[in-house]
Design a protein around this nucleic acid. Structure first.
Length: 830
RNA sequence: GCCCCGAUAGCCCAACGGCAGAGGCGAUGGUCUCAAACACCAUUCAGUGUGGGUUCGAAUCCCACUCGGGGCACCA
């Protein structure tokens, strides 16, 4: 009964709430996860995507941080100095909309939610270094966002241009291409329209090639779907610019094509109807028809325009152009199936090689010439596959270039060579990626630090006047009116020009919030630094982020922008690395009953309720154990009650150990010691492969083995039992910190188990003294042998062939082959 | 249409090309209880989406297909 005397107050059931209340203040005191910049230990940077402060934390936050924390805590246990910071992406529309609704300032909503989320994170026990907390809406932070904007502008990487842009009529602001999904606003789902506006852009296209090339290096450590999404988004294509001369016009029409080899089949040119080129080319006779057509197209929404099965439409512009290879005159049309802002906004119409051109030619009654030999039995329309060139030129036609019979690749090269020789074109590379539109016509964001002066034009706000703070606006002042609320803040917007002192106006737009999150991981390295956005030495010491955990919804947006910022900062000499995130892990979604949680489906699961019912550890364990991190978790299939049951079983071990703390495991039960050693060893490998669910399963096994040893094996006093229980506590500290701490304490140790260090295993215990070899006949198992792990092939074969069950199975048949894989297997082929 | 990922027991998931089962959930039986819940103990169930191929041997490698998830898409 000595156990009961030792722990008189402890009943047989584990009191989750009491354990949580007991350890949280202790950890607050100890601050075990404060990252020391000057630590001699090897550094690791673990980052999880910082949240937007909308309400309290939900299941998604719980999942991503639980997964992330396994890695961060593992690194601490392995002896690294770990930077694991957290902050808030706290500018953005929801706060602004809430402020309009409640007639208050967006900061009220924002900072109230941040406090709520902070408190929840704290209780949730994630190993964040709270001393580095930051908010992108703090002037101390956005001062440097503005500083970076000005530096980018100095390098020609931030500029203003007038261009048709995506406009969300609901949010009353422009959107970046990345924020338009299937013609709808990514945020609110409203149909997006086009508007002609002068807006600020970041010149991300200047880095398109490098952003693409570096993906090769990231491929092994980044999720495949993110790499592929970025490749698709950047959309590199190789082709040629080809010039088509137009009579009476100095400049030719330059088209972009990926199939210069089909030039002999070019029977017309098509120009984007909404391009300045179309406007300029149209003849007076055709102008009325052209303008009517253009008006019709303008009324259409993006959704209608993007529909792929719509009929081809267009208007003849009335001009002809000269095919630079054949010299033939071909008509020039305007259409909406050519995009104004891709390539040159003009395309050579090759109906024989392109299905869209085929449809257009058929509709408009234009000529069709095939220039690639179609395969036997081909009954399609346009053909864009492999085949020898034909009609290039057509039989009997004399042309300065002849590519007949060449393969597509050869023909492309020959055509480009010819065009370059004739100065009528050149080989070129094109990208789908466009410059990043960063202006937003809303209030709750970083003010663009530019002053517009009639005399001096765009003038930067002087660096010593940063931060340029937002004026105090609230409630109805923030109502979207199509221009930024800042434009109406007279006292704020009217200002003296820094150059001439005359009357001028501030730029009244704010920055896309993705600008804020494009460099926050750098700020975390020195969050209180006041001489620049970050301390260069510290950033270089911590960067790159060793693991970045977050949602795959940011595959192209945030991750592409952050990569761009990192490359620019490297080129500015402020960073050594060119890629911010060396490895990445995307968690799946937490769903319920097969569907995404939503109010309308009524299938939401409240994180708060789950925590109240099962406790922090059981919820975290459930999320980590559910399956591979990147898979979706259907909460309906999960059993937090089962997780809690397991935690109790683990906890009970710590009360059963009777040997004193500090007992050497030497001489303890070898069988149990082997299980412990194997579990600790495998757990490390599993964590490094992000296979946390399997790691948890292995800890469960260890708990089961220890239980058996106590109840019906070596007994509670055996040193191996203590060794096993301590290993369980340390391994569990990555997933269930409260339970682990309580176990550690009951095992006679001081807090905190989180910094106890990874259990040391004796390598000798990892080597089994005997293994089971399987003997197969025709691949079917017929016998098992206990053999030494270092047995040779010859010895194993001899043992196997002598086994009575094997002799019986062979049954006197001729042995044709014996495959031996010592020490595991013998396969006899008869 | 193009590209990427996946499919193993009633369910969630394991399995260096070598015994299909580590772990959990559920179910069933038992112990405990006046009874139940909890807890504990035990038992149960698939031949790996389909069809081929490679191999002594395939859940695993290759090909085709089906289904599911995701990305890109009138990008010339």
């Amino acid at each position: 009964m000595s156990e009961q005397e030792t722990h008189p107050a402890e009943a047989a059931t584990y009191d989750v709430a009491a354990v949580q209340d007991k350890w949280l203040p202790v950890w607050d005191e100890l601050q075990p996860f404060r990252a020391d910049d000057d630590s001699p230990r090897e550094k690791r940077y673990a980052l999880t995507m910082f949240p937007y402060p909308s309400g309290d934390l939900h299941m998604g936050h719980a999942e991503v941080t639980a997964l992330h924390d396994v890695i961060a805590r593992y690194w601490w246990q392995r002896g690294f100095e770990v930077l694991n910071p957290m902050g808030w992406d706290s500018f953005g529309l929801p706060a602004e909309n809430a402020a309009i609704r409640n007639n208050e300032h967006p900061a009220t909503y924002t900072y109230a939610n941040i406090e709520t989320q902070y408190e929840s994170f704290r209780r949730y026990g994630i190993s964040f270094d709270w001393t580095r907390r930051l908010h992108t809406s703090d002037p101390a932070y956005y001062r440097w966002t503005q500083w970076l904007f000005l530096k980018f502008r100095e390098r020609g990487l931030a500029y203003r241009k007038n261009s048709p842009v995506n406009w969300c009529p609901n949010d009353q602001t422009v959107l970046a291409n990345e924020q338009v999904v299937d013609g709808r606003c990514e945020r609110c789902g409203h149909e997006v329209t086009k508007r002609e506006l002068t807006q600020w852009y970041f010149k991300i296209t200047e880095y398109a090639q490098e952003l693409l090339d570096c993906l090769d290096d990231l491929e092994p450590t980044w999720p495949a779907r993110v790499v592929s999404a970025q490749r698709n988004w950047i959309g590199r294509s190789e082709g040629a610019h080809v010039d088509f001369a137009v009579e009476g016009r100095a400049e030719p029409i330059t088209v972009y094509t990926t199939r210069p080899d089909t030039i002999f089949g070019t029977t017309f040119l098509v120009v984007a109807v909404d391009s300045p080129l179309a406007e300029e080319l149209v003849t007076d006779e055709q102008r009325a028809a052209f303008e009517a057509y253009r008006e019709e197209i303008r009324k259409e929404t993006e959704i209608e325009r993007l529909s792929t099965d719509r009929a081809k439409t267009g208007v003849d512009l009335g001009v002809t152009a000269t095919n630079p290879v054949t010299g033939t005159q071909i008509p020039v049309w305007a259409t909406d199936y050519v995009l104004a802002d891709y390539g040159t906004g003009a395309v050579m119409g090759v109906p024989g090689g392109d299905q869209r051109d085929w449809e257009f030619a058929t509709t408009m009654g234009l000529e069709i010439v095939r220039t690639t030999q179609t395969p036997e039995g081909f009954d399609g329309e346009a053909f864009h596959g492999e085949g020898p060139a034909i009609n290039s030129p057509a039989p009997g036609v004399d042309a300065p270039l002849d590519i007949n019979g060449l393969s597509v690749d050869e023909a492309k090269r020959a055509t480009i060579d010819f065009l370059e020789q004739q100065r009528a074109g050149e080989g070129t590379v094109n990208f789908r990626l466009r410059d990043w539109l960063l202006s937003r016509q809303r209030y709750w964001g970083v003010p663009i630090p530019i002053i517009h002066c009639e005399k001096d034009g765009e003038v930067a706000v002087p660096y010593d006047q940063l931060p340029l703070e937002l004026p105090e606006l609230r409630g109805a002042d923030l109502k979207p009116k199509g221009v930024s609320p800042l434009a109406a803040a007279e006292e704020w917007v009217n200002v003296a020009c820094p150059t001439c002192g005359g009357p001028a106006k501030r730029d009244s737009d704010t920055m896309d919030t993705f600008v804020d999150s494009s460099w926050y991981f750098l700020r975390f390295c020195s969050p209180d630094y006041t001489d620049g956005p970050f301390d260069v030495a510290k950033a270089n010491a911590w960067m790159p982020v060793d693991i970045y955990v977050g949602g795959v919804e940011h595959a192209v947006l945030h991750l592409l922008y952050a990569r761009f910022f990192t490359k620019v900062l490297r080129d500015m000499g402020m960073l050594e690395v060119g890629e911010p995130f060396s490895a990445q892990l995307n968690q799946g979604f937490v769903i319920n009953r097969g569907k995404k949680m939503s109010k309308s489906l009524g299938n939401g699961v409240s994180l708060g309720d789950q925590l109240a019912e099962f406790g922090v550890d059981a919820v975290r364990l459930t999320l980590v154990f559910a399956g591979p991190p990147e898979d979706d978790i259907d909460w309906a299939d999960m059993s937090p009650a089962g997780s809690l049951r397991f935690l109790q079983r683990a906890w009970r071990l710590s009360g059963d150990v009777t040997s004193p703390a500090g007992t050497s495991p030497e001489g303890g039960d070898v069988a149990l010691r082997r299980v412990t050693a194997r579990t600790v060893h495998d757990a490390a490998e599993l964590i490094e492969a992000y296979r946390f669910n399997v790691m948890v399963a292995r800890v469960m096994e260890l708990v089961n083995a220890t239980r058996k040893a106590i109840d019906s094996g070596c007994g509670p006093a055996d040193p191996a039992v203590r060794e096993a229980a301590e290993a369980v506590a340390i391994l569990l500290s990555l997933v269930a910190p409260y339970t682990a701490e309580e176990m550690w304490s009951r095992l006679g140790h001081e807090p905190t188990v989180a910094r106890a260090g990874w259990p040391v295993v004796d390598p000798a215990l990892l080597v089994e003294d005997s293994v089971v070899a399987v003997v197969q006949i025709q691949g079917k198992v017929k016998a098992r042998l206990d053999v030494a792990p270092d047995i040779g092939d010859a010895d194993l074969e001899r043992l196997a062939m002598a086994h009575p069950d094997v002799v019986r199975a062979i049954d006197g048949r001729e042995v044709r082959k014996v495959v031996v894989r010592a020490p595991k297997l013998v396969n006899v082929v008869v």
